[in-house]
Design a protein around this nucleic acid. Sequence first.
DNA 1: GTCTATAGCAGGATAGAC
DNA 2: GTCTATCCTGCTATAGAC
Lengths: 222, 222
Amino acid sequence: MDAGTNQKNAKNDCTKERILDKAEALFALKGYDAVSVREITAAANCNLAGVNYHFGNKQNLYLEVFRSRWLPHAIRIQECFRESLEANGTLTPSIVVESLARAFIEGPLSEEERKRHHRLISGELAKPTAAFKMIADQALRPLFENLLQDLRSALSDDIEEERLALNIFSVFGMVLCFNFARPLISSFMGCDNDADFKGRLIDHIVEFSINGLGAKSKETRL
Amino acid sequence: MDAGTNQKNAKNDCTKERILDKAEALFALKGYDAVSVREITAAANCNLAGVNYHFGNKQNLYLEVFRSRWLPHAIRIQECFRESLEANGTLTPSIVVESLARAFIEGPLSEEERKRHHRLISGELAKPTAAFKMIADQALRPLFENLLQDLRSALSDDIEEERLALNIFSVFGMVLCFNFARPLISSFMGCDNDADFKGRLIDHIVEFSINGLGAKSKETRL
DNA sequence: GTCTATAGCAGGATAGAC
DNA sequence: GTCTATCCTGCTATAGAC
C-alpha cells in the first residue's frame, strides 16, 4: 500500500517499524486489551517473538506507539494551528478558534491518520494508562497553556482566569466531540460525513464559540 | 455497603443481581476486555459458573448491564430533565440548556452512579459494541429528537434544521466532555472537582451556549 | 535480527454432582 | 440455583537455534 521511496524508509521499513505501524492501527481500532501480540505480529508479517525482542513487552510497545507515532502527529497538528495563527497576523477570537478547529478537524493529517490519532486519544481519555501522563505533559498541557495566552490577548484582558480556562475547554470539547462522535452525529443528522460536512462543522464551531466567547469581553460582572 | 431493606431486594439481592452490580462497576472501571468473568464472580462472591448459568456468556452479561442498569439510569436523567422543563413553564433557550446541563452534571444519580454511567457510555462511544445500538435507539435518539423540538420552539422557528442539530450537539458535546474529561480539566485548572465547581460549570455552559444559540435567532443568512 | 518451539498461565465455557 | 472440577483455547513471554 504505502510505497515509501525515501532513504529513511529503505532502512526503517524493517520489522520494528512495521510492528509499530500495525500496532498503532490495531490499538486504535480495538483498544489495548482487545488486541493480542499475535494479531499485531501476524499483521506486521513477522514473528511472534519480534515484539518482545524490539520492545520488551506489550505494554512498552503500546507506549512506544504513543511516543513515536501519536506524539509527532499531535505536534504536526499544533504546528499547523500555530502557522495558521501567524499567517493571520493579529489574534482575534475568531481566528484563534477557527485555526484550532481547522487544525484538528481538517488539519495536516490524512483521514486515516486523523482517525487513528483521535481513537488513540479517546481510549486514553476514557481509560488512562501510563501513556496518558506522557501525552498530557508533552502535548495537551502545552497546547492548553498556549491557548490561554492566545485567548487572553485576543479577548479583553480583565477576564477571569477560570472563565478563560472554561472557554478553552468548551471550544476544545466541541472540537473533540465532533471528531470522536462524528459517526454518531452524521448518523443522527442523516447526512454524509464528507469534506463538505467537515467544513460546515468548522463554520458552526467558530460561529457558536465566538458568540459564547464574545459576550465575555463585553461584560465584567461577577 | 448497600443495605437494601425493601421486599424487592430481599428476593432480588441474589446472585444474579450481585453479578450485575459488580459487572457494572468493573466494566465501567476497566472496560469490557480488561475484565475477566473470574474477577466479576469473585467480586460478587459467587461461583465462576454463575455468569454462564444466568447470562449464557460474558457478552450477554455486558449487554444485560446496559439493559438493566445503564438504560434505567439514562431514563431517570431524562425524566429529571423533562421535569425541570415542565416546572419552568415556558421554554426559553436558557431554561432548556440549563435543565439539560443540570440533569447530566448534577442530576438524580449519586456521584458513584453518575461516574459509572458516564464511563460506560464513554466506552461505547469510543469503541461501540452490540450495546451501542440499544442505547442509541432507546436513549440517545429519543433525547435528540426531544431536544430538536424543545429548541425549535424556544428559538425562532425559521432556523435551519442542520444548524439546530449542530447547536444541540454543541451543547451536548460540552456537557459530555465536561463529564468525561472532568478529572483532566480540574487537574489542568488546578481546582477541586467538587459540588461548587460543578455549579460553576453549569453556569458557564449555560452562558456560553446561550450566546452561541442566541445569535442564530437574530440572523437569517445562509 | 529473526526464527521455532515451548513454557507457563489465564481466559471463557461446560459437565455433572449436590 | 449453586457448586467443583475440568477442558481447551489463546495469551504473554522466554530460551535457544540460525
